[in-house]
Computed example of a mutant assay.
Amino acid sequence: MIKPGTIVEFNRIKQFIHIKSLGQGGMGDTHLFKDETTDMLFAFKKYAPKDSNYIDEHYDRFVDEIKILFQISHPNVVRVYNYYLYPENKLGYLQMEYIDGVSIADFEPFLGKGWPEIFTEIISAFEYLESKNILHRDIRPDNIMIDKHENIKVIDFGFGKNLVGKDQDGRSVLLNWPVTQLPNETADERIYNHQSEIYFVGKLFSNIIGGNFKDFKFKYIIDKMIQLDPHDRYASFRDISVDISQGVLAISFTEEEKRIYRNFAKILSEYILSHSGSYEPVNDHNVILSRLSNLIRNSSLEVYIQDNTQLINCFVNSGYTYVPKNDILLSTIIDFYQLLQQLESHKQKIVLDNIDVRLSKIKVEISLDDLPF
Rank of each mutant, 00 (worst) to 15 (best):
Y279S: 09
L340K: 00
L289S: 09
V323H: 10
F336A: 06
L273F: 12
N286Y: 14
R297A: 13
S290K: 13
N313Q: 03
I305M: 02
I333W: 03
I328G: 00
S331R: 13
N286L: 13
Y304C: 00
Y337Q: 08
V303H: 08
Y337G: 00
L340N: 01
S331W: 05
N308Y: 06
S276C: 08
N286P: 02
P324C: 05
V287T: 15
L339P: 00
I305V: 06
L339C: 01
Y337I: 01
V282D: 11
S293F: 09
Q338L: 14
N308G: 05
Y320A: 07
Y322G: 05
Y279Q: 09
S290M: 12
L340T: 01
D307H: 07
D307L: 03
V316F: 06
T332M: 10
S293N: 14
K325L: 10
I312E: 08
R291N: 12
I312D: 05
I305D: 04
V323G: 04
S331A: 14
L311P: 03
L330W: 01
S331D: 14
L343E: 06
S300Y: 13
I312F: 06
D284H: 09
S278D: 12
E302G: 08
N298R: 15
D307R: 08
V282C: 09
Y337H: 12
S274C: 11
N283I: 14
R291L: 10
T332C: 10
I334K: 10
S293K: 13
E302V: 04
S300K: 15
S293D: 13
Y322E: 06
L329C: 05
S278M: 08
Y279N: 04
I272V: 15
T321M: 12
L329S: 13
D307E: 06
Y304V: 07
Y337F: 14
Y279W: 09
T321F: 12
L311H: 03
D327S: 12
V316T: 09
N283E: 15
V287H: 04
Q342Y: 08
F336Q: 07
R291G: 01
E280S: 14
D307K: 08
V282M: 07
N298Y: 13
R297M: 13
D284L: 03
V282H: 05
E302N: 14
Y304H: 09
P324M: 01
N308I: 02
D284M: 07
G319I: 08
S331L: 12
S331P: 04
Q341K: 14
V316Y: 01
V303D: 09
Y304T: 04
L301N: 15
F336S: 01
T332H: 10
S300P: 07
L292A: 04
G277S: 07
P281C: 08
L343T: 06
I288G: 00
Y279E: 03
E280D: 14
S274P: 07
T332D: 15
I312W: 06
Y304I: 03
I328K: 05
V303K: 12
